[in-house]
């Protein structure tokens, strides 16, 4: 296990573009803290984002994991290219000839993306604690550590998404095309979503039953947008006569769906590698 991780890290860390992207990702992750400094002060209009309650425990878990998850595309580039480069450099062939089994090859990639996800989660955990204790009015430990299931959701979401990237890297073998396909897939899902919702006009519950199984949709369902949960947003909604009543919590079955996709992507990658002649 450590050997496989070690092998993969040597490959990644010596590649300058991967190194820059990984560093950029973690620096950006840290810079979530900078949101705290968003402050408008135009005469009578005083607005300090940190005081809008976004950094209040336990809401901050939701907010930070949501924002952090949107940075995952930086790592997506790294992951897709670490897979596709093995094909374009033909090093995958040499790795196998040197005595790495196909299973170990996939495992080394999967362990690496899991470590990426884990380190990201730990990062978000630490930053959230720091920000929370700095700005939250609520600091009782009971509240501080409630809603931490968002961290689990964040971790699962990243692992699922990265596995999808790995799979596309193996399937398409060219990083640019694989990333393009990822985008096309995103659009396909959105079109299917739109068709089900508006064209076929299924009832509210039934189209959600179907769309929640789409790979990207299932990942985004894990952490739904937190904006409408803000005090200010709710106020605003009340004034126009709407009452937001979304379900923000993380559900076990959503986690199961994403884990099932993860398993499918990794198994699919392995099968592809096994079936293909190099």
């Amino acid at each position: 296990m450590l050997r496989l991780l070690n092998i993969e890290l040597i490959k990644l860390w010596n590649n300058r573009s991967s190194k820059v992207l990984i560093l950029a990702y973690f620096i950006l992750l840290t810079s979530i803290a900078l949101i705290a400094s968003i402050k408008f002060d135009i005469g009578p209009v005083k607005f300090h984002l940190a005081e809008q309650g976004i950094f209040d425990f336990p809401y901050i878990w939701h907010f930070n994991t949501y924002v952090a998850a949107s940075l995952k595309f930086f790592l997506a580039i790294v992951i897709v290219s670490m897979m596709a480069n093995e094909y374009s450099n033909k090093t995958i062939k040499q790795n196998l000839i040197d005595g790495l089994s196909k299973k170990e090859f996939i495992a080394s990639k999967f362990v690496t993306v899991s470590v990426f996800a884990l380190v990201s989660t730990v990062f978000v955990f630490i930053i959230t604690l720091i920000l929370g204790f700095a700005f939250s009015d609520i600091t009782e430990l009971y509240h501080v550590f409630s809603d931490t299931e968002y961290l689990l959701a964040f971790f699962v979401k990243l692992v699922g998404f990265f596995s999808f990237c790995l799979f596309l890297g193996i399937l398409i073998k060219r990083s640019a095309f694989a990333l393009g396909f990822l985008f096309v897939w995103f659009i396909i899902e959105k079109i299917a979503y739109g068709l089900l919702r508006w064209e076929i006009e299924l009832t509210e519950n039934s189209w959600r039953t179907i769309t929640q199984f789409f790979p990207l949709e299932s990942m985004s369902n894990l952490i739904v947008e937190p904006g409408s949960r803000l005090g200010a947003a709710k106020e605003l909604a009340k004034q126009v006569g709407e009452d937001f009543n979304f379900d923000y919590s993380v559900h076990w079955y959503q986690i199961v769906i994403v884990l099932a996709w993860t398993a499918l992507f990794i198994y699919g990658s392995y099968k592809l590698l096994q079936k293909r002649d190099l």
């Binding site: 040597i10 490959k11 010596n14 590649n15 300058r16 450099n89 033909k90 090093t91 062939k93 040499q94 196998l96 000839i97 040197d98 005595g99 790495l100 089994s101 196909k102 170990e104």
Partner: peptide
């Protein structure tokens, strides 16, 4: 031995030399 274990005791190069160009 399984094939991949056996290959650890083999040294082989096929066609072109394949290495990581940036290393």
């Amino acid at each position: 031995l399984s094939t991949h274990e056996a290959l650890k005791k083999v040294g082989a190069i096929i066609e072109r030399p394949n290495f990581y160009p940036y290393m």
